[in-house]
Write a protein that binds this DNA or RNA. Structure first.
Length: 305
DNA sequence: ACGGCTACCTGTCAGC
DNA sequence: TGCTGACAGGTAGCCG
């Protein structure tokens, strides 16, 4: 469940169940789910077993759960997760049967909720978990949603703040856009410029802001960039309120339930259908091994002045 | 710096 | 029915 709203649904769902819980056991069904943990599966299991989990945090599409401090460790650590294209984190009762594509399971004990299982499921195995050290945020502000601490996993250090983050630097984003010759859609998908935006929300926000996805970023006026940023926030906030986007059982919350935002999509996946604003048939064009959906009439391509 | 391509995987669907 | 190719929400890296 890739993009920011879907990941946030997971973070929020995990929070009450894992905050303050202790990891009782780690079961690795498929070590490919640990590619981000360079020290290997056995080390991953050792690093987590017996540890206390703190409140889950998120920046963009990355999730992390800080581990309670242990005296012997010089640096605080966290369990980090990225869901890739098809990852799910499910909360189950302890002892729940193994599910299809289950990769990793954490059996946890929570003082209020008792014995639970956090199950990482991932069909395509592009997602992964790891234990990583926390490093200070360069700007000194809280690292993301769900945390007041100004530290984030080292593997997330290169990821920009996301547009729902209170500390997202609007001015720096405008400046970065003004510097780039790349197509604006490519810039929106660049997680080092703005994080959390993926193919769906990029297409939706560009349509809402009436910006052609192939417009060179620096051709956009400041006013247009501001409008685009506002639309990104609006579309993500609405998706979040509807529990995220899902087209099938693949993209679900921690209870395995799907969100409803796919019913609200204006352009994504709707090539050939009429533009909801002007009725012109929407187009779908190939773009970096994926697709862009937009309206040729409402979204005019600009050139650099 | 940029665009294009590849790799990493499994599954579904349309067309023949 | 079975094969083939296109396509799917992500990230990272290489090359020209």
């Amino acid at each position: 469940m890739p993009e920011l709203p879907e990941v946030e649904v997971v973070r929020a769902g995990l929070t009450p169940a894992v905050t303050g819980a202790t990891v009782q056991a780690v079961t690795i069904a498929d070590a490919r789910a640990l590619t981000r943990h360079v020290a290997g599966a056995a080390d991953f299991e050792r690093a987590l077993t017996g540890r206390v989990l703190e409140q889950p945090a998120r920046r963009g599409k990355f999730l992390w759960i800080p581990l309670g401090v242990e005296a012997a460790e010089s640096r605080p650590r966290a369990l980090i997760g990225h869901l890739g294209m098809s990852g799910q984190l499910l909360l189950r009762q302890s002892g729940a049967p193994e599910v299809r594509h289950e990769r990793v399971r954490l059996d946890i004990h929570h003082s209020v909720h008792g014995e639970l299982a956090v199950v990482f499921v991932d069909q395509r195995t592009f997602g992964s978990l790891a234990v990583d050290t926390l490093v200070p945020t360069p700007d000194g502000a809280a690292a993301g949603w769900g945390t007041s601490r100004a530290e984030l996993p080292s593997q997330v250090a290169h990821i920009a703040r996301d547009p729902l983050d209170a500390a997202f630097p609007d001015a720096a984003f405008r400046a970065a856009v003004a510097r780039k010759d790349s197509a604006i859609k490519r810039v929106l998908l660049d997680q080092t410029v703005i994080s959390g935006v993926g193919n769906i929300y990029a297409d939706e926000a560009l349509w809402a802001a009436r910006v052609h996805p192939e417009t060179p970023a620096r051709a956009l006026s400041t006013r247009t960039v501001n409008r685009l940023l506002a639309k990104i926030r609006a579309v993500m906030a609405r998706a979040l309120a509807e529990g995220g986007t899902s087209f099938d059982a693949q993209y679900v919350n921690v209870n395995g339930q799907s969100g409803y935002f796919s019913r609200s999509l204006n352009v994504y996946g709707r090539g050939g259908a009429p533009c909801p604003r002007c009725g012109t048939p929407l187009v779908r064009v190939a773009f970096t091994n994926r697709s862009s959906h937009f309206c040729r009439r409402c979204q005019r391509r600009l050139t650099v002045r």
